[in-house]
Design a protein around this nucleic acid. Structure first.
Lengths: 91, 91
DNA sequence: CTACAATTTAGATGAAATTCGAAATAGGAG
DNA sequence: CTCCTATTTCGAATTTCATCTAAATTGTAG
């Protein structure tokens, strides 16, 4: 069940902040890490979780790794919320 | 940040199944617990987390406690996903 | 009032998640 | 080839989470 992985991935403030960062444009792992008061290894761990959940993709250039958002993964989560009745309502 | 609490609450298969159950109609804590191979105390723990996140509300009658869905809490989560660009797309 | 049924709270335990520093990898640059 | 920089992987320490059993609570019935 991918829903499980998606929810685990976004169930962390750091990882959500990473996604927010990538909304604007792509960044390297180092640039992303510079936004947090965390060891690079820790940010790398978060990037791995996001990658495994399919929420980001990477692109290597020289010895930099650029990360990009992949939003299609949210479809299943939105589908679950809508089915529950929690979608956008009129009024 | 309520988003944090919402995501923690739905980041568990048991709690999502409880929400799915309540989609149909309201149930007592005992009826809900009967749906899982877990101790009643464990289900009670999950109900508490859902309650604290505002995703369910309770209603006491005799010595039963009926639980109901409260979907308005999803608005913030949907707002975040939409802002990220992950909302429903055309095509 | 006493006994009972439904549910929660408390305390303990094992498993999973987050973090760090140190070591390993990968790929230029000189 | 050797060094340097960017990034990840590894192993350990700490924290958070899910679960259970046992005890407490709440409220109904008799």
């Amino acid at each position: 069940m991918a829903l499980n992985e998606t929810l685990k991935a976004i169930n962390d403030p750091v990882r959500r902040a990473i996604l927010d960062l990538l909304k604007t444009s792509d960044w390297t792992a180092g640039e992303i890490a510079a936004n947090f008061d965390l060891a690079p290894a820790t940010v790398s761990y978060h990037l791995k979780l996001l990658r495994e959940a399919g929420l980001i993709t990477l692109n290597k250039d020289k010895n930099f790794i650029y990360y990009s958002l992949n939003l299609s993964v949210f479809e299943e989560l939105l589908g679950w919320i809508y089915a529950l009745g929690g979608g956008p309502h009129d009024r």
